[in-house]
Write a protein that binds this DNA or RNA. Structure first.
Lengths: 336, 336
DNA sequence: AGGCCCTTCCGAAACGTTTCAGTGATGTCT
DNA sequence: AGACATCACTGAAACGTTTCGGAAGGGCCT
């Protein structure tokens, strides 16, 4: 491995000069510059980011922690973050928590050891103890995506979850539906509660009674949400429409429908939060409330880089993004 | 930030002693160990991986370069690699090339600067110049996934591509199909050619004529493959079945079918290489030739870690994985 | 008691950078 | 012409570890 010393020797100049040329951190004569560049070229010198990091105290690396990279929602996040990092000359350290808060804490620890300059985090835990540990583990700027954490001071970019489910229900009601079921997320999870609240609010505004037996609790995972849907389909009177509250939920809902012999949209209208390419490839093309996930992620990245550059300071801000309804073929007007 | 020096001072021992107990690289007295651990605990000391890397010459970091993290195939790779890294105490640097060989080379360069110990690469380029540059950029062990690169010495884990398409066609023929179209990948790309070869071989073995006009060239992307399919559907006599050669292709095929008014499987049987959850959520559930992508990736990771540990040496090996057919609802027997 | 070997621990060098005080050389002003 | 800035470059310290020669102390043997 060729070092700065080798380059310096080969060019017949000092180590410091090579460094200043490469980082052009001070004016140098054209002659010096030429000599150094030539030597770098001839030796195929590549700077050692590790040594650089040690000296400067910054690693030009950021960490990304997501619950499940396999979920299109989070892989979209990863993609957008990678682009932002590439543009800013940062490297990207990826961790996948598989929805485990314990793993998440371990990952945060890893990030700390690796001396990342900042972290983009999609949190998967909740509770005071969790937040306390998180606060202890986070020694660099953190930007949250999707969720906020009470008691944890950080920037956060989140969806207007209430508006998302509100919009779906509002649309369904206007299309004539009255008995609308929902496959919600786990109780206690802020996102799930907000989406449920939006559902309820829309019902309220249309003066439709809220019925406990029309809400089923899933887990934002295909299997549990399949079961939740199956149970929902057995309620009487049966709903005429179902709102799915995540892309994985959508998988469970559609499978359950098919297995129970329901046609969509003829027998049951379905609309979901989250848009993905796959949702338009098959039959029916899904009516969805799309999250501007790429824009949200870009915002988060900008926020983090702003913190790192010092152009953003002060307590964390919460940025709220608006979803947009895309009406397709999985919902139909109810006329009776 | 607390350093080894702080810990040493606080414990009243030497820096070197702290290092040896933390890495237990030499026997120490219980008393020393206790003192050090206590100090570490009290100060909340976290080792600096950057300094460690500089000193040891190894970063305990590996790089992963994929063409498109947004593709479920590659996010499955990323997930499996992350798990392997976590288990071995490595950190994971992620790069996304968006199918651009130029970006890929830049990423390789980044990896080199960051002094990663090894790289898992899903290559997106081809050609001699590309391989030459790759060879120059790769200064650490590299393991390839999905594709091999002629002239580039590295381990590689690939699918038996020929068997994949062969199996699909064989199945379709046995189900009574004779005019079978294929939406292949870009010509010149090894994977695409192998899959096409398998298609052709299956036809041969069943004594069915190979017809140019039944093969359409796509790009392993939804849009181009949509167009390829549309064109394929206009050929006369029309095929009764279509083999899709990737998951993204599947999206294009199904959309084209729907837009042209074909029902699947009634009017057209479709089977695809690549299995994804989404392919079973909607109607029809797709008949696919599944890649054991997680196993392949685990194998690749094991291979890389073996190289790093020195337990594997010598020239690169090519490991070939077998796909498995999953018959579902998008294909039907042809009886006439 | 003296010599020797182990066992523990210490101290300092080194990894490859960045950074900054310092050294000449050159130009400018009075 | 002398004093003084200015400029381009050098050399060495420092970042936080690991590693290794060596010192100190204790136990065992003759």
């Amino acid at each position: 491995m060729t070092t700065l010393r080798d380059v310096a020797r080969h060019a017949g100049v000092s180590i410091g000069s090579v460094s200043t040329v490469l980082n052009n951190t001070a004016p140098v004569s054209p002659a010096l510059k030429a000599k150094v560049l030539k030597a770098v070229e001839e030796l195929g010198y590549v700077p050692d980011a590790v040594a650089r990091s040690l000296k400067t105290g910054r690693s030009r690396t950021i960490g990304l922690i997501v619950p499940d990279i396999t979920n299109p929602h989070f892989s979209a996040v990863a993609s957008a973050i990678e682009i932002a990092c590439d543009a800013s000359g940062y490297a990207l350290l990826l961790c996948n928590t598989t929805d485990s808060p314990a793993k998440e804490l371990r990952d945060l620890h890893l990030m700390r050891r690796q001396r990342v300059d900042g972290v983009i985090l999609v949190p998967s835990g909740s509770g005071e103890a969790y937040v306390a540990e998180l606060t202890r583990a986070a020694t660099v700027p953190v930007v949250l995506i999707d969720r906020t954490l009470e008691g944890f001071d950080a920037d956060a970019v989140v969806l207007d979850n209430r508006a998302a489910s509100f919009g779906i229900v509002d649309y369904l009601v206007r299309a004539g539906h009255r008995r609308i079921g929902i496959v919600a997320g786990p109780s206690g999870m802020s996102i799930a509660e907000e989406r449920l609240a939006g559902y309820r609010q829309a019902l309220d505004e249309h003066a439709i009674d809220y019925r406990e037996d029309l809400v089923a609790r899933g887990a934002y995972q295909p299997e549990p949400d399949y079961r939740a849907t199956t149970s929902l389909l057995s309620r009487r009177p049966r709903p005429t429409a179902i709102v799915s509250t995540s892309n994985h939920t959508m998988i469970g809902v559609m499978k359950a429908l098919a297995d129970q012999g329901f046609r969509c949209p003829e027998d049951m209208s379905v609309a979901s939060i989250d848009d993905v390419v796959w949702a338009t490839a098959f039959s029916p093309k899904m009516t969805v409330m799309a999250q501007p996930i790429v824009e949200m992620t870009e915002l988060a990245a900008a926020r983090l880089f702003g913190r790192l550059a010092g152009t953003i300071a002060g307590p964390g801000a919460i940025l709220v993004a608006q979803p947009s309804l895309k009406v397709r073929d999985s919902t139909r007007p109810l006329t009776e």
